[in-house]
Every structure is written in C-alpha cells, then in structure tokens.
Design a protein around this nucleic acid. Sequence first.
DNA 1: TCTTTACATTCCAGTAACTGGAGACTCTAT
DNA 2: ATAGAGTCTCCAGTTACTGGAATGTAAAGA
Lengths: 128, 128
Amino acid sequence: MNISQAAKLSGLSVKTVRYYADIKMVEPARNIQSGYRSYSNDDVAKLNFIGKARRFNFSINECRELLSLYQDKNRSSKEVKKLTLAKIASIDEKLKEFHSLRDELSHLVNCCNGDDRPSCPILDELSK
Amino acid sequence: MNISQAAKLSGLSVKTVRYYADIKMVEPARNIQSGYRSYSNDDVAKLNFIGKARRFNFSINECRELLSLYQDKNRSSKEVKKLTLAKIASIDEKLKEFHSLRDELSHLVNCCNGDDRPSCPILDELSK
DNA sequence: TCTTTACATTCCAGTAACTGGAGACTCTAT
DNA sequence: ATAGAGTCTCCAGTTACTGGAATGTAAAGA
C-alpha cells in the first residue's frame, strides 16, 4: 500500500511515516516504476508498535531497542522489563519536578491580587 | 564585569548567558578595546530573573513577556497572574498525561515475569 | 619583557522528533 | 488531454541551548 494508507492505518502522519523511513526505522519496499514507498502489513504493524511506544514516552532510540526486541523471537522479557522500569523512574522524576513547580506557582498566584496596581508578588519572587 | 562573573552570579553557564545576548534578551555593554561583553548589576538581575522563570518552566518567549512586565513600572499584576495561571494549567495537563502514562506502564510491568523466557506482556501490549 | 595560561570572541554543527513548504513527478478519473 | 490528488526529495525551522574549533585578549609568573 501507499504511504498515506499506511499512515492512516497506523494513526501517524504521512510526514512522520516518511521520517521513520528516512531514519531507517521502518524501511518499506519501493515501487520501481514510480519510486513510491510500498508498505506491507508487517510494516504497518511496526509503525503501530512505534506509535504506541512513542505515546508511552519512549524515545526514538528506545523504540529502536524495543522494536528489535519485538522482532527477536529469542529475546527475554527481562530486558523489556528493565527498559520499562527505567522509563517509569524517569517519569517519576518528571512528576516530582512538575508537582513542586505547580505548588510554587499556585502559591504565588494565591498571593497575587491580580488587579491593576503594579504590585505583584509573582514578579517580586522572580526578581529575588 | 566579564561574562564569566555574570554567569557565576546568575547561576547560568557562560554559554547560556552569551546565548541570551545573541537572542537580544540581555544585551550587555561592550568593552571597546577588547570587544568583551561587560555586564552591569542590572544585567545580572535580569539574568537571575530569567533563570528563575526558566526554572519555573516559562518558555523563552514567556520570559520575554515577564521581563518586559518586570521592567515596566506601570504594568498591572493582572497580566502576570494571567500568564502564570495559564502556565499552571499547562503543567496540570502534563501532570495528567504523565500520571496516566505511569499507571499504564506500571500495570504492564506488574504483569511481566521478567525472566528469560520470551513471553512478555509489555511487548504484547505494544503490538496490539 | 616574554611567555604561559586563562578567559574571551565568533561561527558552525548538533541535539530530538518532527513539521512545513517548494518544486517536480506520478497516478487516477473524467 | 487535463485536472486534481498523491508522492517524491530536499531544505529550513522549531526549542533552548551545548560543544568545539580557530582566534584574539588579559593577567600573572619567570
């Protein structure tokens, strides 16, 4: 199938699918006459896999790792679990950061009158 | 003072401070002889301000806005509050995303044996 | 004074993961 | 035959820096 159908089936944009071909992550066959990319069902399955992994916040390189594990019939689940645990840990980091950020900002907002007078505890805090 | 001291006082890297000069956010005077950037205390205060705002996850453009409000003696606190509330909302978005991501991933990890056999619910989920 | 060393300058490239657009070619339908 | 849709490649832009090369300047020691 052509790229637009592969894109539709995998829920990705055409640009993204072409990008994944460029970076050699999912390299489809080519129609020799037209030069058009020609995607198999297998290719679409990979695109789907990658799309999901990306939505799970795995980076492109992590997706590559996962993809090779996915395609390796002899892989152990240990490796995948390890990668996923690391990902969870990094998400926890981010959560912590964002939580404290949120708390500080909302504290500042609560102290701010929000009227038309120039006094503003938010700016005061930023300039300390 | 020279750039390295301005960097030290503001807690930013020299590269970053130079970058902020390049993008015309904090433009110091120049020593005519040497061409070296020459930072005033006022410049350092701005750098500090920006550094803090960046740590509060404001983008460079938002920092520009905040900075101009900061320097505008006639600004109202309303504007700043609005910007900050929007920032909080976007942080909340991210928090929600990351929370659900985390939950899904840890669910998958809990279902995974993590042994040397190839069966792996994580990959199974990704390939569905 | 000379020399070393530390610090400064500019400019270019790379990061991550795409996205947008230009110009050209191909396919399909009328 | 031609219009319109789809595809191709290639280049640039996004965000906020960071690293490195080649070169110039300042300060301190011998």
